[in-house]
Nucleic acid binder design. Structure first.
Length: 259
DNA sequence: ATGCCGCCAACATGGCGA
């Protein structure tokens, strides 16, 4: 089963590019972030025509997450259970392949947190604490679980082209990285890192200042696996080439294969 | 120091968020 995550930076503005990647990559399950539309405006029919079930948790203008799955989905939860959040950043499903092992899939868009310090950074850290509690609870079920999305966290210096330039950024501050380490220490496996120990495997390049051309990127989109999912991890990758397409998102898809 | 892009309200462009 191929499982992917992609911050599409507006699904409506980017529908042609998004469809092109979905057809090319052919994921079984994919989580989109920053769909930037209400549920009723999500272009669901275009994806249903490709054989996908669609679950959305949209919002006007900003944020918004969605999950496409070729297999039926159950237990859809919108928002982190027990955490009041005005922003649509989290959706959780149980993917149930016919005759196969179910997969719990979380798709998240973690707050950016800039400028830090400040209320936006406080929100980021509070959100990470809520996520930690929710995933800790899910891990008790000992299922195959993938917690994927745009984490807005650069885990290590090897995940950023120029670490010195990011030292005061909410994506790379010590408190951010510490929170992410605590999260990983629940027993999660970073699929990209597990399959590829090379540094500088980026998933985001800013539109500004020729960041793509200079390979001035960061790795902030992650697929975090429960032990039961990590046991069946076969392959993982980043579809870097998508960043070079016309009308590209500033993020590219990341994916892994479980079987 | 700045360089981009998409959203909105509302017709021109400015504010916001990333």
């Amino acid at each position: 089963m191929k499982v992917a995550t992609w911050n599409v930076n507006s699904v409506k503005a980017r529908i042609d590019v998004v469809l092109a990647w979905v057809k090319q990559a052919d994921p079984d399950v994919v989580g989109f972030q920053e769909i930037k539309c209400l549920d009723e405006n999500f272009p669901r029919f275009e994806f249903e025509a490709l054989g996908y079930h669609v679950e959305t948790f949209g919002q006007k203008s900003y944020n918004g997450v969605a999950i496409l799955s070729k297999h039926p989905m159950q237990d859809v939860v919108r928002g982190i259970d027990g955490y009041a959040d005005e922003q649509s950043r989290y959706i959780e499903v149980l993917v149930t392949p016919k005759g196969g092992t179910p997969l719990r899939f979380v798709n998240l868009y973690l707050p950016n947190g800039n400028p830090a310090p400040g209320p936006k950074y406080d929100y980021k850290l509070a959100w990470m604490a809520a996520l930690q509690a929710r995933v800790a609870s899910l891990l008790y079920d000992e299922e195959r679980l993938v917690v994927a999305g745009d984490y807005n966290v650069i885990p290590e210096p090897a995940d950023v082209h120029n670490p010195a330039a990011w030292l005061k950024d909410a994506l790379f501050l010590p408190a951010t990285r510490a929170a992410f380490r605590r999260f990983e220490a629940l027993g999660l496996t970073d699929a990209i890192r597990a399959c590829n120990a090379l540094p500088n495997q980026y998933t985001f390049w800013d539109y500004q200042a020729g960041a793509w051309q200079k390979n001035n990127g960061i790795r902030i989109d992650h697929l975090m696996l429960s032990p039961q999912a990590a046991d069946v991890l076969r392959e993982a990758g980043i579809d870097r080439h998508v960043r070079g397409w016309d009308k590209a998102s500033d993020h590219v898809p990341a994916w892994c294969v479980l079987n």
